[in-house]
C-alpha cells in the first residue's frame, strides 16, 4: 500500500485510522475472517462461536463507518429528485404514515395499504410509488432488481434510505387489519412449507436455535431474538463483494438455495414471509441498515 502524504500547513496530522479502516473493509481482511480456524473442534456448540464473536467486534468498530450510509444518502437524493416518465419525486409517496412521511415508516412495514387493499413491505411499497407517482414500469424494475458489481438498483438505495429513517425505533408491525393477520398466517405457512428436490422449507435451516451452515450462524426466525437478528441486518452492506442488499435479495437467494423456482421480485409471497418474520421481532429496536460479512 503506497501513501504519499504531503503535510500541509497544519503541522501535526496523524494518519491514525487510514490503514486500519481501509484494510478493515478490504477483501483480504474479510477472507481472513472466513479462514480463521475454529477452536474447540469436537462437539462445537454454535452461537456465539469464536468466528462470529470476532466478527461482531469488528462490526461494532465499523458501525459508524458503514458504507450503507452512502446508499442512504443516494436514496435520499433519489427520493427528492424529480424523475421518471412523470417527472415527479417520491415526496408524495405514502409509506403508511401519510404522504411524504418517511421517519418511522420502515419499522411499521409490512402493513395494510387501503389504496391497494393489500399488505405491502417497504420495498414493494417503494416500487409501487415509483410506478404510480413517477411512471416507472414495475416490469422494468424487476428485470435487474439486485445489486451487482456494476450497479445498485434505485429501489435498493431508496429502501436503504427509508430504513435509515427508522434507526433506533422499535419494530411495531401492525396486526389490526384482517389482511395483516392473514399475511402473517400465510407467511408462517410459506415458512414451513417443505417441497422441492431437497425437501427444504425455510424452517429446515431457520427453525431451531444455535444452528450453523458451515460457520454462518442461522437465526431461528420463528423466535423473537432470531427474527430480530434477521430483520436487524437488512438492508445490509455485504463486505464480500462490497454490495448493498435489501431483504428482497436475501429472500430470493434463500429460495435459490432451498432449490425452489424463483419468487417474483416484491411479490406478495415475499411480503407475507416478511410479515411473519417482522411480527415475530415486534417490540425490539431496529438499529438501521447493517453491515455483513
Amino acid at each position: 500500500m503506497k501513501y504519499t502524504i504531503t503535510l500541509g500547513a497544519l503541522a501535526a496530522l496523524s494518519l491514525a485510522g487510514i490503514a486500519p479502516s481501509a484494510a478493515a473493509q478490504g477483501k483480504p481482511a474479510a477472507e481472513k475472517h472466513h479462514m480463521k480456524p475454529m477452536h474447540a473442534m469436537p462437539a462445537m456448540k454454535a452461537a456465539p462461536d469464536p468466528t462470529t464473536a470476532d466478527f461482531e467486534k469488528f462490526r461494532e468498530v465499523l458501525e459508524d463507518d458503514n458504507p450503507a450510509e452512502l446508499f442512504e444518502q443516494k436514496g435520499k437524493e433519489l427520493w427528492t429528485m424529480k424523475r421518471g416518465p412523470k417527472n415527479a419525486s417520491l415526496e408524495q409517496c405514502d409509506l403508511g404514515l401519510g404522504p411524504g412521511v418517511v421517519k418511522g415508516a420502515y419499522v411499521k412495514m409490512p402493513r395494510y395499504f387501503a389504496d391497494v387493499d393489500q399488505v405491502m413491505d417497504a420495498e414493494r411499497r417503494i416500487v409501487y410509488c415509483m410506478e404510480t407517482l413517477q411512471g416507472f414500469k414495475a416490469a422494468d424494475l424487476a428485470k435487474k432488481p439486485f445489486s451487482s458489481d456494476s450497479s445498485t438498483p434505485d429501489p435498493v438505495s431508496l429502501t436503504t434510505y427509508v430504513a435509515g429513517q427508522s434507526r433506533g425505533m422499535k419494530l411495531a408491525i401492525p396486526q389490526k387489519n384482517p389482511k395483516e393477520r392473514e399475511a402473517f398466517e400465510v407467511g408462517r405457512e410459506i415458512f414451513h412449507y417443505r417441497a422441492g428436490p431437497y425437501d427444504f422449507s425455510c424452517a429446515t435451516c431457520h427453525g431451531e436455535d444455535g444452528k450453523r451452515i458451515r460457520t454462518q450462524v442461522l437465526p431461528n426466525l420463528s423466535s423473537k431474538s432470531g427474527a430480530m437478528a434477521a430483520t436487524q441486518g437488512w438492508p445490509g452492506y455485504r463486505m464480500t463483494g462490497g454490495l448493498m442488499h435489501t431483504i428482497q435479495w436475501r429472500m430470493n437467494d434463500c429460495f435459490r438455495q432451498q432449490r425452489f423456482p424463483e419468487p417474483g421480485y416484491v411479490s406478495q409471497t415475499i411480503t407475507d414471509l416478511l410479515t411473519y418474520m417482522a411480527v415475530n421481532a415486534n417490540g425490539q429496536v431496529y438499529k438501521g441498515p447493517g453491515i455483513k460479512r
Binding site: M1, T4, I5, T6, L13, S14, I18, A22, Y237
Partner: peptide, 18 residues
C-alpha cells in the same frame, strides 16, 4: 492537510480517517 495517493489495494467503497 492531506495529499495522498492510493491504489488497487484499497477496497470498494473505502473509509478513511484522519
Amino acid at each position: 492537510v492531506v495529499d495522498g495517493q492510493i491504489g488497487t489495494s484499497v477496497s470498494r467503497n473505502p473509509v478513511f480517517g484522519f
